[in-house]
Design a protein around this nucleic acid. Structure first.
Lengths: 116, 116
DNA sequence: AAAAATCGTTTCGGAGCCGTATCATTTCAG
DNA sequence: CTGAAATGATACGGCTCCGAAACGATTTTT
């Protein structure tokens, strides 16, 4: 079935989702970080620093720093490309998969609680 | 009709929405700022600094600073409460209403583009 | 083999946001 | 009328993020 979302429902969903994230987590991911994370988890590999930077229309250091941060959180993982050792391949982790799953569950739960 | 969102659709919606925000805007609002903004636009007034801080489970300076920032952007507006001049009433602005509307439209558009 | 190009990282100065503690203003209680 | 309470703003030191530029490592070109 197609997803039919009215503007007022969209705003409430957006509010409720962010509200829960803000209340639960001390430190939130930025919009850029979320986009990078979900891109890696939704788009087919391989993912490189340069590729992600081009796709998101940001500079390369933004990706490098986001990988530093989310790498420390163990949400993503760096690996050198064995074929071309200049490249860095960005890969998923178990912890990252769980985090993404939590995002999805939260969205689904909040959407179910929306008024008709 | 009820909103029926599957986890994979939820993730794609989250990604596509954030992706568009990141690509379009140089400077994004933080999760806290979005939550404050939408709370003011969705919940019935009055909205005070103290009330918002309690609702979002953050400290008062967080609200004050968010109002500084979003006030500079003209997305929200401060007004002294004439009844009790200790209070600050947080109110909507024309520009803020347009911004919120843009958020809603973007969510709706991205939800319509979701795969079945 | 040398030079050029590619890729990711690091450095730099600057800006924003954080929590804690403190402050000024206003209201209320005794 | 005066001291306590309530409210929002500010000061402070710390952390993260930013874009631009420079850098080291690797690959490709000449």
């Amino acid at each position: 079935m197609a997803v039919d979302l009215r503007p007022s429902q969209a705003l409430k969903l957006l509010h409720d989702f962010n509200y829960e994230m803000v209340r639960d987590d001390d430190r939130d991911l930025t919009a850029r970080q979320v986009t990078i994370l979900l891109t890696v988890y939704l788009d087919p590999p391989p993912h490189t620093v340069r590729g992600l930077a081009a796709k998101l229309n940001v500079t390369k250091p933004v990706i490098t720093r986001a990988l530093d941060t989310m790498g420390r959180m163990e949400l993503l993982q760096r690996r050198r490309d064995p074929a071309d050792r200049r490249n860095v391949l960005v890969q998923r982790t178990v912890k990252g998969a769980l985090y993404v799953e939590r995002l999805a569950d939260l969205m689904v739960a909040k959407s179910k609680a929306l008024p008709l």
